[in-house]
């Protein structure tokens, strides 16, 4: 299934697939009537279908997984619009495609506003701080990082020590990109104050 394909409308579909799709249509019909077991079965069967379709559109697995969930939420919201007399897959794929487009647009907006933190690598104003360890040791640095508030410690660890991207760090921690940026900035100020004796 690709974005341009017309699922459910092909004539050379194997018989087992046809019956599987018909079963999905039956399940959503039952779900519309309030059958929760049918609804649970339906949603569980949709997950691998959606993972396959959405996974082809989005490279990042965590993004794809989020879009699968958003699609399930939209299916829930829009389940009353499905007409059992019509094919099920075009209805489902239209919803999934919309959520993929929304995600791609959101990514484009975010990446347009994202600031590359590598530009702030030389944060300390005094040369020695940027060029050498000066009179503090890696252990002192680790202690200083350990003393940071939780969010700042997470931000500096993920972004500076593990060299994760903002998006990866955000995905791993659940902290927003904006918060990560602010936390990193504040963490660096605190570290500078503690290690070099500057003001925080």
């Amino acid at each position: 299934m690709s974005v341009r394909s017309r699922p459910g409308q092909g004539s050379a579909r194997p018989l087992h697939e046809v019956s599987a799709v018909a079963e999905l249509a039956r399940l959503i019909g039952a779900a519309q009537a309030g059958d929760r077991d049918a609804y649970r079965t339906l949603l569980k069967r949709l997950v691998p279908l959606l993972r396959r379709f959405i996974g082809r559109q989005l490279r990042n697995p965590s993004d794809a997984d989020e879009v699968v969930q958003e699609t399930l939420l939209t299916v829930h919201t829009a389940r009353h619009t499905y007409d059992p007399a019509r094919p099920f897959l075009p209805w489902l794929i239209a919803i999934a495609r919309r959520r993929v487009i929304d995600r791609i647009r959101k990514q484009q907006r975010t990446s347009a506003q994202e600031v590359d933190l590598a530009a702030y690598a030389e944060t300390f104003s005094t040369d020695p701080a940027n060029l050498s360890e000066g009179d503090w040791s890696p252990r002192a640095l680790q202690e200083a990082i350990d003393a940071l508030p939780e969010v700042q410690r997470q931000a500096i660890t993920m972004l500076k020590l593990k060299e994760m991207s903002l998006k990866e760090a955000s995905g791993a921690s659940g902290i927003t990109v904006a918060t990560l940026k602010v936390a990193t900035h504040r963490a660096i100020k605190r570290l500078r104050a503690r290690l070099l004796g500057g003001s925080a």
């Binding site: 779900a31 519309q32 309030g34 649970r40 399930l72 389940r79 009353h80």
Partner: peptide, 17 residues
């Protein structure tokens, strides 16, 4: 995803087509 499905099933009521 499983938790999400269970939460959606929990609030699923009959809908008017």
């Amino acid at each position: 995803t499983t938790a999400l499905i269970e939460s959606l099933v929990a609030v699923a009521v009959p809908v008017r087509r």
